[in-house]
Design a binder for these strands. Structure first.
Length: 655
RNA sequence: GCCCGAGUAGCUCAACGGCUAGAGCACCGCUCUUGUAAAGCGGGGGUUGUGGGUUCGAUUCCCACCUCGGGCUCCA
């Protein structure tokens, strides 16, 4: 006879349960919300289904839908329902893997006769899933042996590959040699580690999102499977909030806004991944670049210019041709050699450092260039400004003596964050990428020194960071900086990378105080990363409503009637003479219409002038996202907007 | 590059294989003269992405290419 089971709850209290008690028994015993909503139970750190027995003496906690772990279970279980629906609706279909992912889940299928899913199919599959949910089918776990598994999945070759360990799937592959399955009906069983929700009735709040192709085992040489993505949440409210967030993101899409606000375009005549900047986009870009130059000048950088083309010998020396030839535009044969468009500015900056004798007194030597580079991105990877074939890096290369490394990185970090803040980004995430023991150049000593310098800089600034082990490039460790935008999305922008390789390849050296030649360490630093991409991120961050200092047009002045136009014109002249980008809109349409058009252009200020304003030299001020103020003296307005522009206020993010 | 989907006026979208390819916004002209998010009338604007094919007839069906979108792979 087995005896009672004692478990320890998260608050430290003990609970005595009947023999062979399960998580469900515990939940029932606790009652209330626990009995109703618990999805799984964690016992001594191991996730268990609610119907699995609890080990005696274990520390247990119930997992609810609102938690990260709960959502993961919910999404994983919903993926099973998707698989059941597809296998039911498409005879001969087979399935491979279906894990939970951020915000949802997917499942990969292989349909007979190269069939594919359409959007209409998604609706049908979704209805079938809802039927399954309504049936409240239990998830029944079994441990089986390989013979049985072979029989069970005889028609499903991808599952057999997972069983063989050829395909590594952490959600379904055998763990410690134990093969587990989850069965929902006589017909549907999936290879899976679990755990799962008690029954499909827990899975009400999901939506299938899209179909996509995906290579089996992520290998582009293997079969292309049909993937269905879905999202799933604990409540209807959460699901709707997520869908609204997606709508909000779509509204801010820089490709859409760039067209609507006439910022730039991607003419197909140019070819994929190449943009032309229209006047309104170009002025914003110019302001960004001007500000960047100003800050670099203050920061002790020296400006350089280098050409777009170089002899292939340069890229052989730098190693780019060996490692990245696939990403470079094809060579051009010239009468005196073979030339390439440059994919990077660093080799040319190394030539500048290497020209003549360098003294330790010149270090740190900071070179800066807005350098345009060209990379042959594969056609399917292009994405607006975010992934583009021709772009400009705000690229700097710093040459330092080893003993200067720590201080230089620390001040570099200050510099980068300060510039990012000026553009309205103040929520950062940092990643420190360390040596890949399989792939690196340079001594352990120098790697440690550089990694310590990077880590020290982060810690000196009191910044939280995550370490990405073995994620560094072969030439040195790095810090990557992500920013969060106004709707909480992360974008990787800046990077600070140590490089022990290029100084070697280019045989760079300086003469130190001891009279000996020493090798400098090189730092690569991109702040915006790519001007194009940073601009795209800014458009999405502000939803096209640029802060006043960056707005293509800062003020429009509207007369109430046509006979106020000349007064409006005079105000515009006064604004322009104060360095403000202003324009007059003639009164050939009703005032409301003209205001509406200005609002759609997301202008920071619209001024309206009528009889009283002509008399008193005032204007009605209609600010973006604020209330209309009447009878504001023009001098006051000029002073106010001038101050706002001067301090580069990013202000509330108003739409 | 691979899978799926889409390309019609500057933009957003209509048009069973069949009459001169339509509408709103935008643009141009005229009228209206307006106090804070859409006044009225008229006009111009298209080789339906490009090239082939099927057909009496193609925006519509088929093929190739180009560009775009969603993914996969890749991203110095």
């Amino acid at each position: 006879m087995s005896s009672d089971v004692t478990v320890v709850l998260p608050d430290g209290s003990e609970r005595v349960l009947s023999p062979d008690a399960t998580g469900a028994d515990l939940a029932a015993d606790l009652g209330g919300r626990a009995a109703k909503d618990a999805l799984i139970v964690v016992a001594d750190g191991i996730q268990l289904d609610l119907n699995q027995p609890l080990p005696d003496g274990s520390h247990v906690s119930l997992v609810f839908p609102a938690s990260d772990a709960g959502l993961e279970v919910l999404r994983h279980s919903t993926a099973h329902v998707l698989a059941q629906a597809v296998l039911d609706l498409y005879p001969g279909a087979t399935f491979s893997i279906g894990p939970p992912i951020e915000d949802g889940f997917y499942y990969d299928f292989d349909l007979p006769n190269n069939q594919t899913f359409s959007d209409e199919d998604l609706e049908q599959i979704s209805s079938k899933m809802k039927e399954i949910v309504n049936r409240k089918q239990p998830f029944i776990r079994s441990e089986i042996d390989r013979t049985e598994a072979d029989k069970l999945f005889a028609a499903h070759p991808y599952k057999l590959e997972i069983l063989d360990g050829e395909a590594d799937d952490p959600t379904s592959g055998p763990e410690d040699g134990v093969i587990t399955t989850y069965r929902n009906t006589d017909d549907f069983v999936d290879l899976c580690r679990g755990p799962h929700v008690p029954d499909t009735g827990y899975l009400a709040h999901f939506q299938l999102m899209r179909v996509a192709g995906a290579y089996w085992r992520g290998d582009e040489n293997r079969q292309m499977l049909q993937r269905i993505y879905g999202t799933a949440w604990a409540t209807k409210k959460d699901l709707n909030a997520h869908l609204e967030q997606l709508e909000e993101a779509a509204k801010r899409d820089h490709r859409k806004l760039a067209t609507e606000l006439d910022l730039l375009s991607f003419p197909s005549e140019l070819g994929g991944g190449l943009a032309v900047w229209h006047p309104k986009g170009a002025i914003v870009r110019k302001l960004m670049e001007d500000y960047s130059r100003e800050r670099h000048e203050e920061g002790g950088y020296q400006f350089v210019y280098t050409p777009h083309l170089a002899n292939q010998r340069l890229f052989q020396t730098s190693g780019h041709l060996d490692f990245y030839a696939d990403g470079m535009y094809p060579p051009m044969e010239m009468d005196n050699g073979t030339y390439y468009l440059k994919p990077m500015n660093c080799p040319m900056h190394c030539l500048i450092f290497g020209h003549g004798q360098r003294s330790y007194k010149e270090l740190p030597l900071r070179l800066f260039e807005l350098g345009t580079v060209y990379r042959y991105e594969r056609s399917g990877t292009l994405h607006g400004l975010m992934r583009i074939r021709g772009f400009t890096q705000d690229d700097s290369h710093l040459y330092v003596a080893a003993e200067q490394l720590a201080d230089e990185i620390a001040s570099l970090l200050d510099f980068v964050l300060s510039v990012l803040r000026a553009f309205g980004f103040d929520d950062f995430t940092f990643h420190l990428s360390t040596k890949d023991p399989e792939k690196y150049v340079g001594s352990d000593e120098i790697w440690n020194q550089a990694t310590d310098a990077l880590r020290g800089a982060l810690e000196r600034h009191g910044l939280d960071y995550a370490v990405k082990e073995a994620d560094a490039a072969f030439y040195g460790p790095k810090i990557d900086i992500d920013v969060k935008d106004a709707i909480g999305r992360s974008w990787q922008l800046s990077t600070i990378q140590c490089d022990f390789n290029l100084p070697e390849q280019f045989d760079l050296h300086y003469v130190a105080a001891d009279g000996e030649r020493h090798r400098p360490i090189m730092l690569h630093r991109a702040l915006f990363g790519s001007i194009e991409r940073f601009f795209g991120v800014m458009v999405e961050h502000y939803g096209g409503a640029f802060p006043t200092w960056l707005s293509p047009v800062q003020v429009q002045v509207l007369g109430v009637r046509a006979d106020h136009d000349s007064f409006a014109d005079k105000i515009v002249e006064r604004l322009i003479s104060n360095g403000i980008r202003a324009e007059m809109v003639e009164a050939d349409e009703p005032l409301g219409t003209r205001i509406r058009k200005g609002k759609l252009e997301k202008l920071p200020y619209i001024l309206v002038v009528g009889d009283a304003d002509v008399e008193h030299d005032t204007a009605g001020v209609n600010p973006r996202g604020g209330d209309v103020e009447r009878d504001v003296p023009i001098v006051d307005f000029v002073q106010r907007i001038t101050a706002e522009i001067a301090e580069k206020a990013t202000g509330p993010n108003v739409q």
